[in-house]
């Protein structure tokens, strides 16, 4: 049985591999100069929060979200295991306004988590941004729902992204997260969760309250792999919407 390490302090495994050759890095330099990076340039903010596995709350990971607005009601985020340049891209998250969440089929809703307590509890913050400015945006985030996947189980010490994707959940009440992990994060980023909690007390979550089907509907969620025959070409109906 692999043992999960929940501490957010870095010290995870090194990604194996030879250093980049000079010829290769020259390709990057040239590409960076002539290619266009419009979707990447859209990534405007860095949010730090915690995720746990949707079937195992005891496995908790510090998640650095780098998010861009696709429109006012939706953001899409790349999730890294740290804020450093060489951080590992471990997952992604979609964040939608309540009104979009409400349009999802019931079966889909359980895969999404609420952000109310993450925000109100002070457990989600924007490194390097003055709290007053953070709050202007977090007043919106507090009402949203998120769907997060991790593809790389760094908490198990995986050197490479092996295994299946995992649906992730976020904190919904006190005493779920390991206090020593949270403390260590506070120290590293110079933030006070307690103070922010007070400052954010005025905020209100989703207008219709937390949807009972969200957050797994109270159950754990685990993705399971199934081997299937590839469909023969002839039998495949081509449906394009």
């Amino acid at each position: 049985m692999e043992k999960a390490v929940h501490l957010s302090a870095k010290g995870g495994p090194e990604v194996p591999g030879e250093p980049t050759k000079t010829g290769t890095s020259m390709v990057d330099t040239a590409a960076a100069a002539v290619q266009s990076f419009a979707p990447i340039n859209q990534i405007h903010q860095h949010l730090c929060a915690f995720h746990f596995y949707a079937y195992d709350m005891t496995r908790q990971v510090e998640a650095h979200h780098f998010c861009g607005h696709i429109n006012e009601d939706m953001r899409q985020c790349l999730i890294y295991d740290g804020p450093e340049a060489n951080a590992r891209l471990i997952g992604l998250e979609y964040i939608v306004a309540e009104k979009l969440f409400m349009t999802l089929p019931d079966d889909e809703k359980k895969l999404w988590h609420t952000h109310e307590w993450e925000v109100k509890g002070g457990l989600l913050f924007m490194p390097g941004v003055p709290e007053a400015i953070q709050r202007q945006d977090l007043e919106k985030v507090v009402k949203t729902y998120g769907k997060a996947y991790h593809f790389w189980q760094v908490d198990l010490g995986h050197e490479l992204p092996i295994g299946l994707p995992n649906i992730m959940m976020a904190v919904t009440r006190d005493r779920q997260l390991y206090p020593e992990m949270v403390k260590e994060t506070e120290k590293r980023f110079g933030v006070s969760i307690e103070k922010e909690r007070e400052a954010r007390a005025y905020m209100t979550g989703p207008d219709h309250g937390i949807h009972p089907l969200a957050n797994g509907g109270g159950k754990g969620i685990k993705l399971e792999v199934r081997e299937v025959d590839i469909k023969p070409v002839e039998s495949v109906p081509r449906v394009f919407v």
Partner: peptide, 16 residues
């Protein structure tokens, strides 16, 4: 392909 399975959550506190 991946299926979405519903299982009991291993947890150290109430959820949600």
């Amino acid at each position: 392909v991946l299926d979405i399975g519903t299982v009991e959550m291993n947890r150290n506190a109430q959820f949600p």
